[in-house]
Design a protein around this nucleic acid. Structure first.
Length: 259
DNA sequence: CCGGATGTTCACCT
DNA sequence: GAGGTGAACATCCG
């Protein structure tokens, strides 16, 4: 999906819907409804309810209502529009087009506004009362002690562990590469090989990176991102970037300074 | 035309 | 059990 920073943008947009009431639900795509629910069930559960609060855990957007809590996942190409206002102008790897066919889920609100999810690839989904116990702490607020525990005793590649949403929620492929590149750690080394000082450094760099890229406006605005291609060079030392598959995802790293 | 792209889930290996 | 791989979802882009 968009990674946590994009979902955070969606959350801020959705916050404007807090206090308003859902007058109609449009769920044209059964595939998009997760957890064994259908359009009738969601409609019955949400119609007439008031939106009470907006939350985000990792890449999951949660809207608490006077009825159930609504869980929104965006896959790689999902976008949230509130009141016809596109909350994000450009999404990497997605189109700027706006095909009515891609509207997967719409909440009509009592003042004539609406909250709509568009998702060309249908990789996202909507769920009622999602089980958030399956998610680790959010990467923006994870404590050092928690991060130490997340990385301890694992032979998995460091990057794979950081992207494991059940252990740490929020980092996707681009953010993981950016954070590891900035902190100087090889994405492929075993998670447990980091010393306490290493984890402390990683923790600081991760939080700083998330704060900075949030201000810049997205996960695709990192310093490594522009060089993330087969011919890319490290912006720090100019070395040709290494391209590998780690944790099932294409990974770019600098063989020179990431150890 | 082919491969790959901010993601998750699942079946199937090692 | 822990990890890894490849497929699936559907569309666009180089």
């Amino acid at each position: 999906m968009p990674e946590m920073l994009e979902v955070e943008i969606y959350r801020r947009a959705a916050a404007t819907a807090v206090g308003r009431r859902i007058v109609a639900v449009h769920a044209p795509d059964p595939w998009y409804l997760k957890g064994g629910i259908d359009a009738d069930i969601v409609t019955a559960a949400l119609t007439g309810q008031q939106i009470l609060a907006d939350r985000r855990i990792g890449k999951l957007l949660l809207l608490d209502t006077s009825g159930p809590t609504l869980g929104l996942r965006f896959g790689m190409t999902g976008v949230l529009d509130v009141d016809g206002q596109r909350s994000i102008d450009a999404l990497e790897y997605s189109t700027h087009r706006r095909d009515p066919q891609w509207e997967r889920f719409i909440l009509h609100l009592d003042d004539g506004g609406a909250l709509r999810m568009r998702d060309p690839r249908r990789l996202g989904g909507v769920e009622l009362d999602p089980d958030v116990s399956m998610l680790g702490p959010d990467a923006a607020v994870v404590t050092l002690a928690e991060l130490v525990a997340i990385l301890a005793d694992s032979s998995a590649p460091l990057k794979a562990r950081l992207m494991d949403q059940g252990r740490l929620a929020g980092l996707g492929n681009l953010l993981a590469d950016e954070v590891l590149w900035r902190s100087g750690f090889d994405p492929g080394r075993a998670a447990r090989s980091l010393t306490p000082d290493d984890v402390s450094h990683l923790h600081r760099v991760m939080r700083r990176t998330l704060r900075q890229l949030d201000r810049r406006g997205g996960s695709h605005l990192g310093d490594l991102q522009q060089q993330r291609s087969r011919t890319g060079c490290c912006p720090i030392d100019g070395a040709a970037l290494l391209r590998r598959t780690i944790g099932g995802r294409t990974t770019y790293s600098c063989p020179q300074h990431q150890r």
